[in-house]
Amino acid sequence: MFKPQTQPRKTALITGACSGIGYEFTCLFASYNYNLVLVDINENKLIEIAERFTQEYNICVTSIAKDLSISTSPEAIYLELQQASIHIDVLVNNAGFGIYGLFNETNLNSELDMIQVNLVCITHLTKLFLKHMVEKGEGKILNVSSTAAFQPGPLMSVYFATKSYILSFSEAIANELEDTGVSVTVLCPGPTQSAFHQRTGTENSQRMKDMKMMDAKTVAAIGFRGLMKGKTVVIPGAKNRILAEAVRFLPRKQVTKISKAVQGH
């Protein structure tokens, strides 16, 4: 059990903070007495959360409404916090979305936006905030990937590829940062109850109807515990952990076929 911290109060930055796993992380960090920097595209929801959490938890909440598919957003976030003298102790790169369909039929602009949010933005924000953490000798970074990271994903090919990048990138820099006082954790949840499936267009698929999904609160709690313990890879749920490991021992072509069947085509 992690005890709420005493002074000096630390600050956590969370992207995609208004819904799903991101919102549950927001609740967790607030309950552990962290000041918050919340980033999301939904400005009205950000304002509502900031006002409510400031009153409920007596913490400082900074809300930054940004579209992370715009390449200049990470730098703008960083500069705004620099100007306000807000230093980030924990960076939670949670924002992301998926697109479902055959690659030759899906929308290119939407997929480029997804690459920007899921992959480029995470890399950019990590680069910007990591330097100060290393100089200070302490800090934590949590990158949200997926069990999709462990195999190719026909019908969600670009999404699966971005999540594979996050896993590989996070494990690599976690190794680089050993003995610096800074830890990097990558959270790889399986299908989770959230608005994610509505955006991808898979919420009415038979696969989603038949699947027993973990709730976002549980996933965030497991991720939070792993982050605080300094774990590198966190996969919530025994079944998800077994499946993630099992694909390592099967021929890649077979794994890809199974993945396509699971996706429902």
Rank of each mutant, 00 (worst) to 15 (best):
E111M: 09
R52K: 15
T62Q: 14
K140Y: 00
A12Q: 13
G264R: 15
I99G: 00
S71Q: 14
Y78N: 12
L36F: 09
K260V: 09
Y78V: 12
N204S: 05
Y165C: 04
Y57N: 05
V90L: 05
L46E: 07
V61L: 09
M156L: 10
L68F: 02
S183G: 08
S183K: 09
T15Y: 01
I77N: 00
I122H: 06
K260L: 13
L13A: 11
A174E: 10
A161R: 10
Y57S: 05
M214F: 02
A195V: 10
N104W: 12
Q116W: 01
R248W: 11
C18H: 04
Y34Q: 05
V247W: 09
H265V: 13
I77M: 04
T72Y: 01
Q7G: 04
L187A: 04
S85M: 08
S168M: 06
S63R: 12
A161H: 06
T106E: 04
P152M: 13
G96C: 11
Q5I: 15
L38N: 03
S259T: 14
I64N: 02
N204L: 06
Q263W: 14
N42A: 13
G226L: 04
Y23N: 04
S146H: 06
I77L: 10
V234Y: 08
I41D: 03
I122M: 13
Y32G: 02
E105H: 07
K209A: 12
M114F: 10
I115Y: 08
E203Y: 01
K136T: 01
G190N: 03
L243T: 03
L128V: 08
S73I: 13
H197G: 03
V39N: 05
I49A: 05
Y23E: 14
S205Y: 12
R225F: 02
E245R: 09
P8F: 06
V90R: 03
R9N: 13
M156W: 07
A195N: 07
R9T: 15
S145W: 01
I173C: 06
V134H: 01
I49D: 07
R9P: 15
E48F: 10
I242Y: 15
E111C: 02
I21A: 08
E24K: 04
V262M: 12
V120K: 08
L187K: 01
S71A: 13
S157F: 00
P189S: 14
Q193T: 12
S63F: 05
Q7Y: 08
G190T: 01
E138G: 00
L13S: 10
N44A: 14
A17K: 02
G20T: 13
D113L: 01
I49S: 05
R199H: 02
A84H: 09
E56M: 09
L167S: 03
R52I: 15
T162M: 09
V90M: 03
R199N: 01
A17R: 04
D215A: 10
Q82M: 11
A76Q: 09
I59Q: 07
H132P: 00
I59E: 15
P236W: 02
N44Q: 15
I77A: 06
E75F: 11
Q82S: 09
P152C: 12
E176R: 11
L142H: 00
D89M: 11
K140I: 02
T15W: 00
L68A: 11
V117P: 00
T180Q: 08
V120P: 00
E138S: 14
V61A: 06
F25T: 13
